[in-house]
Every structure is written in C-alpha cells, then in structure tokens.
Design a protein around this nucleic acid. Structure first.
Length: 574
RNA sequence: CGGGAUAUAGCCUAGUGGCUAAGGCGCCUGCUUUGGGAGCAGGAAAUCGCAGGUUCGAGUCCUGCUAUCCCGACCA
C-alpha cells in the first residue's frame, strides 16, 4: 500500500471524548470515527487489523472442526418468545416493528436463531457433533457505551455454538474451544488469563472468560499466586463456610430507637459500632418472588453469586413499596427477625460467625440489638454470596488471591439443554429415542480484542502492534522524496518485501523525515525501514524495531530477508 | 435510570451582553526546507447543537429539546 493513497489522517490532538489509550490512539491513527454513541466507522487501518484477527480465528476454529455460517442480524420476536428471553431481556435488546407491525429485534446474540436453524436439520445422533460459528456485527443497546471499541453498542463478534449428543461429548467440545481460544489469543501476542466466570442470563453452568490484562480493564479478576486458579470477581470463591458462634454469649434482642438511620454508615455512626457488627438486610425480587438477603454490614452482595445459588434468571432490588409490604417498614429498617413466614431468607456465611449483631427491626426508625443466627432467625438458605478479595485464600491450594484488571475478549459457556429444551432441538439416539442436543456457546469480541491489543501495547509515541494484528507489518520510509536514488531504493525494498509476503506500506508522501517518523511510531508498524540519503551512500538502510526502539543498519540486499525473518518470528510467538 | 458536565470550522481551544467570532493543528497555493510532527507569505473553511424567550443588541442570560462525555447503577 502506498500511503499517499491510504484513506486515513493522523492527528496530533484527540477529541475530549476519547478517554483511554486504545480509543485515543485509534482515533489519532485514523483507524476509527464515531458515528453515534457506541457506533463507529472502521477505517482501512482498523479493518485491516480486524481482518487479520478474523483470519486467525477462522484458522484456529477450523482446526477444531468448526464451520462458518452467516445468520441474519434482524430477528423475529417469535424465536425470542419461544426461548422466553423476549420477556426478560431488557431494553438492551433493540426492538422494532416491520411494515406489517411484526415485532423484530437486532441480534445481540444468536442462540435462538442457531437453535432454530439446527433443529430444522437435526435428525440423528449420527449427524453430531456440530460446531457452527459466524463473524458478524451485533447490536446491544448498552446503557452506557464507552471507551471506543471497548464497549460499543454495535460491535463485531465471533459467536459460535456447539451441539453434542450428551453432556460428556459437550464437555469435550468445551475443552476444545477453550484450547482454540488459548491458541487464538496467544497468536495475537496478547498477555491474558482464562478465568472462571459467571454465566449471567445466558444461562448454563460452566464458563470461562478470556481476559487480556490491562490497567484500563473494566473487569476485576482474582488469580492465585501459587496455582492456576483465576476467576472474575463476580465468580471468584475463596475458602468459606458456615462460621461458629458461642451461644453462651447470646443476649436477648432489644429494640433501639435509631431515627432516620437508613444506611449502614448512618447507623454505624449513630450507635458508634463498626459496620461489621450489623446485618445488612436487603429485599430482592428473584424471578418475581421476594427474597430477603442477609450479609454482614461491611460486605457487599454479589448478585451474580445470588443468581447462581438460586438458579435464577433475574435478580433485582425490590422497590420501596414491596419492602414496606413485606417488612412493614420503610427501606433501611428491614431485618430477619419475625419475617420467616412472610419471605424466603438467603443468608451469607458472614452472618453466622460471632454473636449479637444489630439488624433492622422491621419498624420505622428502630433497629434490633443482639440478633443471633440460629436463635432469633434461621434462613432458608445459606451460602457464599459476597465478593472475594485480594489477599484471601485460594480455594484450591494454600496460595493467596491477587488482583488484576482485565478486558474480557472472549467467553466460553457450557449451556447444557437450556435452549434445546425450550426450543425443542432434539435428535434420535441409537435406540430410536428422542434426546435433547447438548449445547455450548463461544464468543469473541473482535473489535474489542484489537482495542485490547492496543491497551496492552502502546507508549507515549503511539501503538506498538503485535505483528499478528498490525495493519501493516512493516513500513518503508524514503526520507528525501526529492532524491531519485532514495525514492528508487525505497520502491525496490517495498517491492521485495511484498514479494516475500510481508504486508508492507510505503510512505511515499512528500513529507519531511520527522513527520514520517512520528506517523510511523503512532500507527505502530512493528518495523520501520528508513531509507535515507545518508546511509544509502554506504549502500545501507536503517531498520527500527518499534517494540524495542532498537535501530540497526543493514545493507540493501539483506533487508528483505531480515524483515521477513523478524516478522515470521514475531508471529510465531505463542 | 440517578448524579455531574459539555456543545464555537475536520480536530483542539479562546471568546465572561456591544465593532467584521479569534488562535493553534489539519487543508489549498507559492517560495524555501529535507534524519524526529520545519519556516515565510497568501487562501478556503463556522446557519456558535436545535427551538423559543429576555434585550436596543445574545456565541455569551433564561426555558425547553437534542447530542456527546464522565461517575454510579446496569451489562449473553
């Protein structure tokens, strides 16, 4: 590619909107343009990187026997009603009507469509396994899109779905996909961790996220400093169980007047007691049923763990009216004592250690002192529903958990029969009996992975592309465009590199040397081949390695082979 | 959805009720220059987010709307 013809423009300044390095740099390097909140144009440089990632994805998936399709991104409501998700998928699902008044949505994911497609073709166990994927634009009307390609509303995603005869076969497929993902992100030259993940409302009961480690990551992950355990903070567990109490220390409950003290902070200040001496009692609506959740005052409820423990589809806070109806008091004065018959109670292990807690009294402006687990109340369910934290023990070994920030670039789910059941996707087994297909699903955020690569690889001057994702692997920079021999040498090297199969750009613009250097650093070509009058006198050019800043002089006849070798070496790193 | 902020040329900004809306980056022309975003001279480019209002006079004040960003809640 001759850069004089490339559709792009680099900028010295960034719009105020761009907040994180990948967004700023992609903007400055002329890779993306915003069209609306969370919706972007991909310019040639960005799309080249995206296509390179897509190629890696295709190669690795095809090695595992996956097949590529392309499904519609406009989907009829009927399928979503069948799976039940039309009802409880929120406004994130962009819905609209066609001219006949029929309900449609833009696909945020494709479980429904793929399951429908497969069930129409699936007859016999002999056909399975099937593992089908697509790379396509998705739309999710995120409440708060941000950070450029990191969290867009419209984004490119690879989504794949597997269909197996039974759980055992499906778990083999899951492992294959896990391995494929590991290979994909390794080939991209990314530093990442595969972590245990929550399954959210896509359902299923086993999942890993692939997290690229980066400061600006939106996800918090915990990993063991000793073994391979790593998990999203939503899912991370630590060694926890029911605690112990000394019942000889139990005192009788006693009401205490606490006017206006609704939050743990207020009541803790008012009574001059530490937050850990309180039981936080919060009413949730879990699958339309109220549940009172208890946790120690200094801890937070991990809704994801609640969802898992309850096997629920939705977990949300109850509104004030519901709280009043159930507890007989305004929000802020709920407590477990005396509510046993009115509402189901879920307690965290944290309330089972120690004695004489303070909780709400289910009476406006009153709290109850000396509340004891097992004596004054007994929850219906007990479990670990708090967040794990750095410094706690690893659940698998004696190590300690440490904290990292991560960007979720991929996720694999074991779905079981969640969708094949509601949508009746079945086959006949050897005995002629009807069986449900067992499914898995597997996603990669394509644009996000490219952005994550930049988050992880940049400096003050610009992007430092891993060779595998670089829009161009090398750039040739003729410094004096008015000198025939420089232009000639540049052209020759450029042609040689292309002939070697190196994806090369030639900066043939009538610009000064400094300008070309700045642009090359910003765009982040892994190698810069500097053709200048000075070194050309010795029959040499200078090669700069963007990653290390290292510069070396090479004779003209050695350049192409050096570049080829270097790039191949970089791309082989995994 | 709650809280906060912003909206002036393609981009970054100045403009604090009063003359023709100013500067930098970028763009075009010419000259000069050619190893780290050069210099000089000239030029094009703005319905000051939209609508209404206050005022002799509004980019500037008020109201409404829209869009964008930030924090939080949310997020297969």
């Amino acid at each position: 590619m001759r850069i004089s013809q490339l559709f792009y423009q680099t900028l010295k300044e960034v719009p105020r909107e761009a907040q994180i390095p990948s967004h700023q740099l992609m903007f400055r390097a002329g890779m993306i343009q915003q069209l609306a909140s969370g919706i972007y144009n991909y310019l040639p440089l960005a799309y080249k990187s995206i296509r390179k990632l897509e190629t890696i994805i295709r190669e690795e998936l095809e090695k595992k026997g996956c097949q590529e399709v392309l499904l519609p991104y406009v989907q009829p409501s009927e399928l979503w009603e069948e799976s039940g998700r039309w009802g409880y998928y929120g406004p994130e699902l962009l819905r609209f009507k066609d001219r006949k008044g029929g309900d449609f949505c833009l696909g945020p994911t494709h479980e429904e469509v793929i399951t429908d497609m497969v069930r129409k073709n699936l007859k016999s166990y002999r056909q399975l396994p099937w593992n089908i994927f697509q790379i396509q634009t998705k739309f999710r009307d995120e409440v708060r899109p941000r950070f450029g390609l990191m969290r867009g509303r419209e984004f490119i995603m690879k989504d794949g779905y597997s269909f197996d005869v039974d759980e055992e076969a499906s778990k083999v497929t899951y492992q294959k996909m896990y391995d494929a993902y590991t290979a994909i992100f390794s080939r991209c030259g990314l530093t990442f961790r595969a972590v245990d993940a929550a399954t959210g409302n896509i359902g299923g009961d086993m999942s890993h996220e692939f997290q690229v480690l980066a400061q600006s990551g939106e996800d918090l992950i915990l990993s063991c400093d000793t073994c391979s355990y790593a998990a999203n903070v939503e899912k991370a567990v630590t060694k926890r169980s029911e605690g112990t109490r000394d019942s000889s220390l139990f005192e009788e409950p006693e009401e205490v007047h606490t006017p206006g003290c609704k939050t743990i902070e207020e009541i803790s200040d008012f009574l001059k007691m530490d937050a850990s001496r309180f039981i936080k009692s919060i009413v949730y609506i879990i699958d339309e049923e109220p549940v009172l959740i208890l946790i120690r005052g200094d801890l937070d409820i991990n809704e994801s763990k609640v969802q898992t423990i309850m096997g629920a589809n939705s977990v949300e806070l109850a509104d004030d009216a519901t709280v009043l109806e159930i507890t007989g008091a305004g929000t802020g004065f709920a407590g477990p004592v005396g509510l046993k018959k009115k509402v189901k109670i879920l307690a965290d292990f944290s309330v089972t250690s120690g004695e004489n807690f303070v909780s709400g009294a289910n009476k406006d402006d009153y709290h109850l002192k000396n509340v004891n687990y097992g004596k004054d109340y007994t929850p219906d369910m007990l479990g670990d529903i708090t967040f794990a934290a750095a410094g706690e023990s690893c659940p698998h070994c004696d190590g300690k958990l440490e904290e990292h920030r991560g960007i979720e670039v991929g996720q694999v789910f074991y779905l079981g029969t969640k969708y094949s059941k509601t949508m009746n996707c079945s086959y006949l087994d050897k005995d002629g009996k009807d069986q449900l297909a067992v499914m898995g699903c597997y996603g990669i955020g394509v644009g996000r992975t490219v952005a994550a690569a930049i988050e992880q690889n940049h400096d003050d001057d610009g992007i430092i592309w891993p060779a595998a994702l670089a829009p161009f692997e090398a750039v040739v920079l003729p410094l004096q465009m008015n000198k025939e021999e420089v232009v000639q040498a540049g052209d020759t090297i450029y042609e040689e590199l292309k002939a070697q199969g190196v994806d090369t750009a030639l900066d043939d613009r009538e610009e000064r040397a400094g300008f070309k250097f700045k642009d090359a650093d910003l765009i982040g070509y892994p190698l810069q081949i500097v053709v200048g009058a000075r070194s050309l006198e010795n029959g040499e050019v200078e090669v700069k390695i963007r990653k290390t800043g290292e510069k070396m002089n090479l004779s003209l006849d050695k350049v192409a082979s050096f570049v080829k070798e270097y790039i191949d070496g970089e791309k082989a790193i995994s």
